[in-house]
Computed example of a mutant assay.
Amino acid sequence: MSQSGAQSKRRFVLLMIFALEKAEAFGRVIAPPMLRIALSLPFFRSGLTRWDGFLSISPATLFLFENQFKVHIFGAAYDFPEPDTVALLVAVAEVTLPVLLALGFATRFVALALLIMTGVIQLVFPDGWANFHLYWASLAVAIIALGPGPLSVDHLVRRWLEPGKI
């Protein structure tokens, strides 16, 4: 290979390395909020259907938790204990946790809570694993592993608490 050919190849390799480094840096900024929003949306949409006005659980939600939703464990289906209380907790969680997650506030804890909720939902709807629950669980685990990212309230709080470290 000629001197100019080797030089061209080296420039191309350096350009590719530079491009990949910039793509990685872009991904590190954009991926966390995209993951947070992707996980937030299905829970938030579901949460909006649970309410019938301000702080009023819809009758349909109460009916579902009292009569339809069952926990499937070891081949048997069990009623929720205190279904009205569970319905209220779920309705509150499905609205507040996605908002906190989208903002990136208490990100890893919220992602863990949504992962646990996904596990409970899997017990209620055992056939939903391949269609929904696997993806929700994967998003939650990715968020727990990667953290909130620089475009988050958590990042701002950390900068405020530890100004010299970031």
Rank of each mutant, 00 (worst) to 15 (best):
G5I: 05
A6S: 12
S8D: 12
R10V: 00
R10S: 13
V13P: 06
L15W: 11
M16L: 15
A19W: 09
K22L: 14
A25G: 11
A25S: 15
F26A: 12
I30T: 05
A31W: 00
P32D: 01
P42R: 00
P42D: 02
F44N: 00
G53Q: 05
F54P: 01
F54Q: 08
P59Y: 03
F65L: 06
F65P: 02
N67R: 14
Q68N: 14
K70E: 10
V71R: 05
I73F: 15
I73G: 02
F74P: 00
F74C: 00
Y78T: 01
Y78F: 12
E82D: 06
P83H: 04
D84T: 14
T85I: 14
V86P: 00
A87N: 00
A93L: 11
A93E: 13
A106C: 10
R108T: 14
F109I: 15
V110L: 06
A113K: 09
L114D: 03
L115D: 02
I116Y: 02
T118P: 02
L123M: 15
V124D: 06
F125K: 03
P126S: 11
A130I: 11
N131T: 15
F132M: 13
Y135K: 08
A140R: 09
A140D: 07
A142G: 08
A142W: 03
I143T: 03
S152D: 07
V153S: 03
L156V: 12
V157C: 01
V157Y: 10
P163S: 10
P163Y: 08
G164E: 10
K165N: 12
